[in-house]
Simulated scan of single mutants.
Amino acid sequence: MSVKFGLLALFADGPKYGYQLRTEFEERTGGTWAVNVGQVYTTLERLERDGLVAAEGTNADGRAMYAITEAGRAALDGWFSTPVTDSDRPRNELAVKLLMAATTSGVDVAVVVQRQRTESLRTMRDYTTLRRDAEAVDDVAGVLLLDSMVFALEGEVRWLDHVEATVLRRGGRLAVPAKPRRAIRPAAGRAVERSER
């Protein structure tokens, strides 16, 4: 998620000041994405520079207030209506780590997978507890956010099982491809590596 658009979305219900944006951003993301005040003000400056928000004077406490502009509303509408693709997400460090482990001599892939599985299951347990707490206070947004995190971890654990089984079937190590790889761009525009034919 782009901090820029996350902050821009906060202006939809009215003008805000910097620290208020920080607090509301963390509340709306269930405390799972902390942003520091400096990052908020830097992003706010860029939003103003790009004409997406405009200064609206000060509030009763003397804090500089900002409001979304028409251009900002159009940009926000565009963000909400555009699906997130893999190219919008950071690289998956776990995938890179396991692929490196599976192709590096002297590394026991089963041990690497088991340590990660243990951590993923512990994190899933913690999120499930937090989800129950959110459900108890009727925090629907928190429940949905935690559901997303639990579902992602369930997928991760299934993938870890698959990686372990695949590598073990091949004697505990994957061969480094002899053929060079080239990037291809599927219809969705995502770069994928495949062997030359």
Rank of each mutant, 00 (worst) to 15 (best):
V35F: 06
Y127S: 01
A95Q: 12
R182D: 13
S87K: 11
M1P: 09
V84S: 09
T104V: 04
R122E: 14
A188N: 11
A95F: 12
T32R: 07
A102S: 13
R117F: 01
L52H: 11
A101Q: 07
G38W: 09
D161C: 03
H162L: 15
Y17T: 02
D138M: 03
L99Q: 12
R131F: 07
R132S: 14
A191L: 12
G18H: 08
V137A: 06
V167L: 04
E45T: 11
P186D: 09
A67E: 07
Y66M: 03
R63S: 08
A74I: 11
E119M: 10
F151D: 15
T42I: 11
L98Q: 00
T43Q: 06
R132K: 14
V150A: 01
V96T: 15
V157L: 08
V107W: 12
V113K: 06
V35E: 04
L174M: 09
L98I: 09
H162D: 15
D50K: 06
R89H: 04
Y41D: 08
A75K: 07
D61Y: 12
F5E: 11
T23E: 13
R181N: 13
V140S: 09
G31F: 04
T29M: 05
L98W: 13
G57I: 03
T58I: 07
G18I: 02
L21N: 06
I184E: 10
R194E: 15
R132I: 06
R181W: 14
A102I: 00
Q114R: 14
V163Q: 07
S120G: 07
A67P: 00
V53S: 05
T82C: 01
A95W: 14
S148M: 08
Y17S: 01
R131M: 11
R117T: 13
N92L: 12
V113W: 07
D138P: 02
L10R: 04
G62V: 07
A187Y: 00
V53E: 03
L153M: 06
T69W: 04
A187H: 03
L52Q: 10
D13Y: 12
V84G: 02
L168V: 14
